[in-house]
């Protein structure tokens, strides 16, 4: 169990490092020693529990996210505009017409964040970990699932970074 978790964490180090860089974090987290806080989140159809978060600026957070729904979901952190841009891109990817067939597919979610936003994709039943350092220069961010229709149905929450 412990090994699996560690493997998942390591697998995400690349995107985590990007994330830290993007938001001007002072250090790239390497292991548990540097994690200030662990937040467990459930991604369901169509919600996150919790519905909002308070995070200390500069803190390194380990998110442990479990997909308890029937559909694939993602967990992406970014500001509202970045989330919206990502959402629009995902919508276009799903085809011009309401996403015939595969809107909400897991494959589509893969690799679409291009390392710009810290993100994980979760198949139904899957659990993943994301380590992320909260930036010091913004007041609030959003976490969201931008698979077409998911955000609109309620899969988003506010991260309050005002300390």
């Amino acid at each position: 169990m412990r090994k699996t978790l560690l493997a998942l964490t390591l697998g995400l180090v690349t995107s985590t490092a990007f994330a830290a860089g993007e938001h001007g974090g002072s250090h790239a987290p390497a292991g548990d020693a540097e994690v200030d806080r662990t937040i467990r989140l459930e991604a369901g159809d169509m919600w996150f529990d919790a519905e909002s978060l308070n995070v200390e600026p500069g803190h390194t957070i380990r998110f442990e996210i479990t997909n308890t729904g029937h559909l694939a979901h993602e967990f992406v952190i970014g500001d509202a505009q970045a989330q919206e841009a990502h959402r629009e891109m995902m919508q276009q990817m799903s085809g011009g017409h309401g996403g015939h067939g595969d809107h909400g597919g897991h494959d589509m979610a893969e690799g679409q964040h291009g390392g710009q936003m810290p993100a994980v994709n979760l198949a139904p039943g899957e659990r993943a970990t994301l380590v992320w350092t909260a930036p010091k220069n913004v007041d609030s961010l959003e976490y969201a699932c931008n698979i077409p229709g998911h955000y609109e149905s309620g899969m988003s929450g506010n991260i309050d970074l005002q300390g």
């Binding site: 559909l71 229709g149 149905s153």
Partner: peptide
């Protein structure tokens, strides 16, 4: 934008 979440009372995967 409207996101369709149910048809004939039955939930459907959301369609914007």
């Amino acid at each position: 934008k409207m996101t369709v979440v149910a048809a004939d009372g039955q939930p459907v995967q959301p369609v914007p």
